[in-house]
Write a protein that binds this DNA or RNA. Structure first.
Length: 228
DNA sequence: GCCGTGGCGATCAGTCACTG
DNA sequence: CAGTGACTGATCGCCACGGC
């Protein structure tokens, strides 16, 4: 960790938090990723070696605590009180980023795996039917990770890259950019459908509710810029 | 004195293979 | 699955130098 050689609390916080990837690791822990590979899925461009190193640093700084996984290798990672106290800071950083550092979504920042992992965590509870819903999502413009299945049940979402074997309720076909725009809040779900960026197939009553419960970033409503 | 540039060594990050 | 280690390329920090 690089030191600023200052007693200033902002400098001390920056020494820990401004290291590359650290903010994103804390974000993953905040969102409920407690195992090494869960955290990895949220930061897919980070190498496992570096993730292990950053987790050790966070542990040394008493932001993260570890408990050995019973009957297995590795640890369960949890935020300590110091880590939990970062929650409003991370939230504020997200709101700030959405307003002032918003991505123009160049191809290099689009990744189906990362998007689907984010989407998995952000399905709305309101309007979502109580029964299990199986959705098949097809990307028209990617080679790898082209087809996904999302299982929605009891307010939880599971992702599969292999056919889970259930009857499909909703077929959703789209391109990577459009779904990313919908998720990040640059394009409304209804507008994406009316423009033909998202094609849907399934029972009409189920599709009608989708603009309400389909996953969107928690920052999607900040300073919206609608794309037409 | 200030500023920009270039060279060089140290450090960091990413990739890949590997382990238990 | 949950890491570790070796290797390599990229980046950073420091210093010297030259132009103004």
């Amino acid at each position: 960790m690089k030191r600023y050689g200052s007693f200033c609390p902002i400098a001390k916080a920056s020494e820990i938090l401004s290291e590359r990837w650290t903010f994103l690791i804390v974000r993953e822990l905040m969102l409920g990723a407690f195992h090494f590979n869960d955290i990895r899925r949220g930061v897919p461009r980070m190498s496992p070696a570096l993730l292990a190193k950053r987790l050790r640093t966070l542990q040394d700084c008493e932001i993260v605590s570890t408990t050995p996984i019973s009957g297995g290798r590795g640890f369960e990672y949890r935020l300590t009180q110091a880590g939990e106290d970062l929650r409003p800071i991370i939230e504020l950083a997200g709101h700030w980023g959405q307003r002032w550092a918003r991505s123009k979504l160049p191809p290099g920042e689009l990744d189906p795996g990362e998007l689907m992992w984010y989407i998995r965590r952000h399905f709305g509870k309101i309007g979502l039917p109580a029964r299990r819903i199986v959705m098949q999502i097809d990307f028209t413009d990617v080679r790898r990770m082209k087809r996904w299945w999302v299982l929605l049940e009891d307010g939880e979402a599971d992702l599969c890259l292999d056919d889970p074997g259930f009857d499909i309720d909703i077929y959703l076909t789209t391109d990577l950019l459009s779904l990313t725009q919908v998720y990040i809040g640059d394009l409304s779900f209804a507008r994406a459908v009316s423009k033909g960026c998202i094609e849907l197939d399934g029972p009409r009553d189920l599709l009608r509710g989708m603009p309400v419960w389909f996953a969107r970033s928690r920052f999607a409503d900040d300073n919206p810029i609608w794309v037409d």
